[in-house]
Design a protein around this nucleic acid. Structure first.
Length: 476
DNA sequence: ATGTTC
């Protein structure tokens, strides 16, 4: 990235001043090295986002930002419906409500190590993974509609997991305002056999150990202790979300001129929040959020089933489940005035600070768990929402390491079996149906997640609580 | 991310 276009407005905050068609400034949270290593496309993309109607405060990019479809991955942008604000299918992304959930266990790393290979094998048998993988659940039209309206609450009512899990999911596991009846038959048919599947790409299920604590009080509140085993799931709304994204990107791009919107980039396809199309997208996007909640909830149930076969009285309590590809209606203070905004977070995690409305009581004093999925074989992180993040970036933080190179480049540099052996030497068992997938996800293809979260903390976006190291990784 | 190009 060319640094010449930026004003450094804080130790970890860089601003592109408003110019041309920009309605607000564009800002990136990074240190000089992370910023320099970012693709120039990230700057171009947040400048374009800053041109969209009704945007407030600024177009933001998180420390892990990289080039995405229209919006950068690691992008945050909020729009005011009363100021002509828009909702953008490209601002949410194809993998609607992709997110991370983390379970704390009553097991130690040594308990996992004693059965590591067998446990990895059984998890890989129980968790369908990979492109086009199918689960054992088949839903008819009425069941699909109930799932799309009820999310994880529907899943729990079907026997997948426990009522206590719901309090630990964003929106209590059920996104209000979903309109299953507006979801296309094609999207529904793609998802009919994909509930309880992991998908591919950077999605994974990992058994990890708590490697180091950075905030003892927050760790206690979250139930995390050194050397404890935890289970992280990273996945989204599978074929349904992708189909909805595809359909609405096309429809919004075609409809934009009719809404008086001059798109700086066709990939930023959007519609006014108050328009029929904008409202229809929000309804089906919320249905996809429920699909992702239900999918992750079923995966929790499947993992618990496997752990029950290996351990007496193993507990996998849900710490939290939070999405990083969404558009959510939230209230934020802008210049001291509370406004109703539609906040797009694409590859960015909501990061509510202490005492925020909507947090369960047990987490309120500490702040929302901000779950950061790292790259395969490196590390993942638990952060806590920081009150300073509200003013800095509308209560948002990073979501992962961020790719340092393309999948194509990575597949040329590594082989699946080579990466698997290298990780095995580090005590990490990787299971995947795709050798190419493992090569594409090689740890070296990602930025340093440790540096990303350190900068996120220094920038006031979230506070580091715990570093997690993988032991078993199930990849798509 | 994705029945890896309806």
């Amino acid at each position: 990235m060319d640094l010449g276009q930026f004003d450094r407005i804080g130790p970890y905050q860089w601003q592109i001043p408003q110019s041309g068609g920009m309605r607000v400034p564009a800002q990136i949270f990074a240190d000089e090295t992370l910023l320099r290593d970012m693709d120039d496309k990230v700057g171009e993309q947040i400048r374009n986002v800053a041109c969209l109607p009704g945007i407030v405060t600024a177009a933001y990019a998180m420390p892990d930002a990289h080039w995405g479809y229209g919006f950068p991955i690691g992008g945050v942008a909020a729009f005011d419906p009363e100021q002509g604000g828009v909702v953008s299918a490209g601002g949410v992304g194809f993998d609607i409500s992709c997110g991370v959930r983390l379970h704390v266990t009553n097991l130690a790393a040594a308990d996992i190590r004693a059965v590591q290979d067998k446990l990895a094998h059984e998890l890989s048998r129980a968790i369908p993974a990979g492109m086009g993988s199918r689960g054992s659940i088949r839903l008819n039209d009425a069941e699909m509609a109930d799932m799309l309206a009820g999310g994880a609450a529907w899943a729990v009512a079907q026997g997948y997991g426990r009522t206590a899990d719901l309090a630990r999911i964003e929106e209590q596991g059920k996104m209000a305002g979903a309109t299953p009846e507006a979801v296309s038959a094609k999207a529904i048919n793609r998802q009919r056999e994909e509930m309880g599947t992991l998908g591919s790409g950077n999605h994974y299920l990992e058994v990890q150990r708590v490697d180091q604590l950075f905030d003892d009080a927050a760790a206690r509140a979250y139930g995390l202790a050194p050397d404890q085993a935890v289970v992280m799931i990273h996945c989204g709304s599978r074929g349904l979300g992708h189909q909805i994204g595809t359909e609405y990107l096309r429809e919004m791009a075609i409809a934009a001129p009719g809404h008086g919107i001059d798109l700086p980039d066709r990939e930023l396809a959007c519609a006014p929040i108050t328009s029929e199309l904008g409202q229809r997208y929000l309804g089906v996007m919320r249905a996809a959020i429920n699909c992702a909640f239900a999918n992750r909830q079923i995966l929790t149930h499947l993992v618990r089933g496997v752990f029950d076969r290996f351990f007496d009285a193993a507990t996998l309590d849900l710490l939290y489940d939070v999405s990083h590809n969404t558009c959510k209606e939230e209230r934020h203070a802008v210049d001291g005035v509370s406004r109703r905004l539609f906040v797009h977070r694409k590859g960015a995690t909501r990061a509510y600070g202490p005492n925020a409305a909507g947090l369960p009581e047990a987490l309120s004093a500490t702040g929302q768990p901000v779950l950061i999925g790292g790259s395969m074989g490196t590390e993942s992180w638990v952060l806590a929402g920081d009150a300073r993040s509200e003013a800095a970036a509308l209560s948002s933080a990073c979501h992962g390491a961020g790719r340092a190179m393309s999948r194509h480049q990575a597949a040329k540099l590594w082989t699946g079996s080579g990466v698997t052996s290298e990780l095995a030497a580090l005590g990490i068992t990787v299971k995947s149906p795709s050798k190419r997938g493992i090569a594409e996800e090689a740890p070296g293809a990602y930025k340093s997640v440790a540096r990303v979260v350190e900068v996120a903390e220094q920038a006031g976006l979230a506070r580091r609580v715990a570093r997690l190291k993988p032991m078993i990784c199930i990849k798509g």
